[in-house]
Design a protein around this nucleic acid. Structure first.
Length: 458
RNA sequence: GUGGAUGUAGCUCAGGGGUUAGAGCACUGGAUUGUGGUUCCAGGGGUCGUGGGUUCAAUUCCCAUCUUCCACCCCA
């Protein structure tokens, strides 16, 4: 049998120890902030019923779902209509519906909504939860985009208060300040976008308008206008939209302009009012990071209804590293209407990439084992084991080299693992009862008692 | 889904229609059998992604396929 080349699926990654230490550092910072703000942890399964997932992320999203083939003979009981293989358009959807009824989660928000509905009687509302777990998307991988990645979600559900939006902004500010990443927090409101669509006379084209506008800073005005026309917006509407596309500069100017723009749009005025409250709160709080009211911010997920937030690193070109917003009726589809929630998601993997590029990881987090016992033979092993247990009980991370091999090799091991101290205990030391402690950095070594050693190592 | 690149040693990459395909790093042994990092010496390791075609001859040229990466769409 030929040996197969080891590999992992496209867009997935292994995490060696050095990376894990850093990843855990990110998770710990985020988790600590979440807890300080009073959020509680939950976890949900990696796979959900496809019925829970499908139709929640738009058509694109459905395509990006990983579907899990049913166990056993999945072709059994396949109805006649499903094998309409001659109709290529409906074939795929038809088939998957019958041979897969589970899928890997696409994000943490929809499973959370399912969770809330399912456990509504046990939860205390407003329910504030956080959740740090991997999600999967059958996307094509590229820079900053993976098929398996971790999201760190915080949501509060069962409260309409804008105080929650403000709190989330504070959480964003706290997390990125602690991690040392300089960010720009962009805010917008879906109602403002709806107002714009209404004011230019294309209320039914909200999604098309936002998708196009979202690209303004990337492709420029002309391309955006082209796309708007292409998406079926009338020339007249596009002309009306121009003052909005040109809107830049001070927040106050944006408000004044939109105020008049929305004189016939109630949604627009409502959205503007919400934005105004949130921004006023934030102004008083003196956040470390900059925030801005950006009307071109759209965000794809179809379930957002109010405030939307997106965070980008200032020093690295990368997609957003955190995003979220308010959704008024996410639980409605699972049978619990009128439950408003708002939440954000930190992209741990992108945050890692940003920190790596900017060299923001503290050196100290790499330290692990403090001392290594050299293995000189059967008798010495036995003697060292007791000393080792003693050190470990004192909370000193330590280990013994498991094999009696050449000293050179054992020293090399300590060296490569960055272990700062080595303990050499051979026949002489056993006889004298002293320990020979070597400092790997300076190369110095001295004879110590067990107590002295413990003091030096702790 | 669309477009562009890529694939040679465990890793990063040179090279080239013609005898035994190279380097650095890593690995193993030695100089140094109770002392690592530096240095020096020696050694192991490759169906040149896979399948087909052109040719006296293909790892090299051509086609297909897959892989990985990059951009678009969309997104964390």
């Amino acid at each position: 049998m030929s040996v197969q080349k080891p590999s992992i699926p496209k867009g997935t990654r292994d995490f060696p120890p050095a990376e894990m230490v850093r990843r855990n550092y990110i998770f710990e910072v985020i988790r600590n902030v979440f807890q300080v703000f009073g959020y509680q942890p939950i976890e949900t399964p990696a796979m959900e019923n496809l019925s829970t997932l499908m139709g929640k992320y738009g058509e694109e999203g459905d395509k990006l779902l990983f579907k899990i083939l049913n166990s056993g003979n999945y072709l059994d009981g396949l109805p006649e209509s499903a094998s309409r293989i001659l109709d290529p358009a409906s074939r795929l959807i038809d088939l998957t519906r019958h041979i897969a009824d589970k899928g890997l989660r696409y994000d943490l928000t929809v499973p959370f909504a399912r969770f809330v509905v399912q456990h509504q009687n046990e939860l205390i509302f407003p329910f504030k939860r956080y959740q740090i777990q991997p999600v999967w998307r059958a996307d094509r991988p590229q820079k900053g985009r993976y098929r398996e990645f971790f999201q760190c979600d915080v949501d509060v559900i069962g409260s309409n208060s804008l105080l929650n939006e403000v709190e989330l902004a504070q959480i964003i500010d706290a997390v990125f300040t602690r991690l040392g990443i300089r960010v720009l927090i962009r805010l917008n409101n879906r109602k403002v976008l709806a107002g714009i669509a209404e004011a230019i006379g294309a209320p039914d084209k909200l999604t098309d308008i936002t998708v196009a506008m979202d690209k303004l800073d990337k492709t420029g005005m002309d391309k955006v206008n082209d796309e708007l026309i292409q998406r079926g917006i009338t020339y007249e509407s596009v002309v009306k939209l121009q003052p909005i596309l040109n809107l830049e500069g001070k927040i106050k100017v944006k408000f004044d302009t939109l105020e008049t723009f929305f004189k016939d749009s109630e949604v627009g005025r409502k959205g503007l009012e919400e934005m105004r409250s949130v921004l006023e709160f934030l102004k008083d709080l003196h956040l470390e990071n900059k925030f801005d009211f950006d009307i071109t911010l759209a965000r794809g997920l179809s379930y957002y209804t109010g405030t939307i937030i997106e965070v980008k690193a200032q020093d690295v070109a990368m997609g957003s590293i955190c995003g979220g917003g308010r959704y008024d009726d996410l639980t409605g589809i699972f049978g619990l209407p009128g439950m408003s929630g708002v939440g954000i998601s930190f992209g741990a993997d992108r945050i890692y990439d940003v920190m790596n590029e900017c060299k923001l990881f503290p050196e100290t987090i790499l330290a692990a084992t403090r001392a290594l016992f050299i293995n000189f033979g059967a008798e010495e092993e036995k003697y060292c084991l007791k000393l080792l247990a003693n050190l470990r009980q004192a909370g000193i991370p330590s280990e013994i080299y498991p094999d009696t091999v050449k000293l050179k090799k054992q020293m090399e091991y300590a060296n490569r693992k960055n272990i700062p101290f080595v303990l050499l205990i051979g026949k002489d030391e056993i006889e004298s009862g002293m320990l020979t402690l070597k400092d790997m950095q300076s190369g110095e070594q001295k004879s110590c008692t067990l107590e002295e050693t413990k003091k030096l190592l702790s």
